[in-house]
Amino acid sequence: MTTHAPATEDAHEAHHGHSHGHEAAHGTFRSYMIGFVLSIILTAIPFWLVMADVFESSTVTAAWVMGLAAVQIVVHMIFFLHMNPQSEGGWTMMALIFTLLIVAIALAGSLWVMHHLNTNMMPMTPEMMKNMP
């Protein structure tokens, strides 16, 4: 078990001389194991929820699955990708937030617009369906 004492961390920084947080953050054995155990739990729960049909309503299960996925993504970001607001002077976090914004717009926008397009389609009779090209 390697527990990085603050003293060794300081020595490490001093060794680098002009280190001002641009060196990528390193994990420790402990942080990797915490991340690993958390992600196993967060993977096992949604699979169990779906495979064992725990909830009556599939909407509730879907909400749980997506919620746990979001939590697991955050766990991976922190423990495996070592995201923190200080790395690279905050620019990695800025890029991440900007990307998340674009991703949210692309996902929500596509689903929203296409859903409305679907529901506002002209109703089709079986006759018309049969004569479709």
Partner: peptide
């Protein structure tokens, strides 16, 4: 360390 930011 700019490689890391670029790769990110």
């Amino acid at each position: 360390g700019s490689t890391m930011l670029g790769f990110w």
